[in-house]
Nucleic acid binder design. Structure first.
Length: 304
DNA sequence: AACACGTACAACCGCGGCGCT
DNA sequence: CAGCGCCGCGGTTGTACGTGT
């Protein structure tokens, strides 16, 4: 299916935006609001394509953007979210108010990747680089891209080229320590997270101990379900929606929506009542994505 | 001071999803 | 149902700036 170019390239500026262009774009959007990016440049008197205008506005000019360095909490939240969502930068950005997908993506590639590599963790799989279950299909890039070269000390020393998996193994047999590994479509407010993987990890895998030794300050074992014990009976199915529900530490059952911290949403099919600080309700002791400590509060965040 | 190399980030490009006709 | 067009996403590139030699 052929596609027409998004804009008449011969009549559009490219490259860095000037102050005047910024001002025009801001003024136009203040007057008319966002949207209709294709027609916006012409209406605003800009010699730019609509995509360029949209990008400039979203990533740089939007008034609600939080400029400045990422905090340690944001770092850890990004790592957690990335381990769950993969390179779904827009979804990750949706949970970091004031941050854009582009900003997070750049930050990941320039800072967090290296940080994880220094910790001996594969940034793609969030598992130890030495993990034998870390199926190796691609070569560890010595650079993020052609010029984002990492210095030699950033790379975990290996005698040979180490390869890692950047995707869920296509082979049907799951790693032995995964008892649950299934695709889910979940809806969070107006967004749908597709191909979400639930991995419930059995206790005491060799690699976990290894990982804890390596990075005692970071628990990247992201569980859906109670952290204290797991067995196959812990995962039951939500009768109404056919999606998994989870046993809580107190023996109660929460639905998948609640396990993601979106209890009380329309997707919630259980009757659990979880306070944000985790101090009441059947799910006491449950802390997903730092909900307890207030790092993340889905209900207070507006999706992009 | 000059150069080379590394880093950070804004911006671009191509593609897929989705709605409309 | 297919074609079309727009929007948004993720990957990649360009380049200014910083640092080391």
């Amino acid at each position: 299916m052929g596609r027409s170019p998004c804009c008449e390239k011969s009549h559009t500026n490219k490259g860095a935006w000037t102050k005047e262009e910024d001002d025009r774009l801001i003024a136009y959007i203040r007057a008319h609001g966002e949207g209709c990016w294709r027609s916006l440049p012409k209406a605003a008197g800009l010699l730019r394509c609509g995509k360029s205008c949209r990008l400039r506005w979203i990533n740089y000019l939007r008034p609600d953007l939080k400029r400045g360095n990422f905090s340690e909490e944001e770092d850890e939240l990004i790592i957690k979210l990335h381990s769950l969502l993969g390179n779904k930068w827009s979804l990750i950005a949706g949970r970091l108010p004031g941050r854009t997908d582009n900003e997070i993506k750049n930050y990941w590639n320039t800072h967090i990747r290296r940080k994880l590599l220094n910790r001996g963790i594969d940034p793609a799989t969030h598992r130890p680089l030495t993990d034998p279950n870390n199926h190796q299909t691609t070569t560890i890039p010595t650079t993020t891209n052609h010029h984002n070269a990492t210095t030699p000390h950033d790379i975990i020393p290996t005698t040979t080229t180490t390869t890692i998996s950047f995707s869920t193994p296509t082979t049907p047999s799951p790693p032995h320590h995964l008892i649950k590994h299934e695709q889910q479509d979940i809806k969070i407010q107006n967004n749908i997270i597709k191909d979400y993987e639930i991995k419930t990890i059995l206790p005491v895998p060799e690699n976990q101990e290894q990982q804890q030794q390596r990075c005692p300050d970071l628990n990247l074992e992201l569980r859906i379900g109670p952290p204290h014990h797991h067995n196959q009976n812990d995962v039951v199915h939500d009768v109404e929606y056919g999606r998994p529900a989870f046993m809580t530490g107190g023996g109660g059952i929460i639905c998948f929506a609640c396990s993601l911290g979106i209890q009380n949403s329309k997707e919630c099919s259980c009757s659990c009542t979880i306070s944000l600080n985790g101090t009441s309700g059947k799910s006491m002791g449950y802390d997903f994505l730092g909900l307890k400590n207030g790092v993340l509060d889905y209900r207070s965040l507006e999706m992009k």
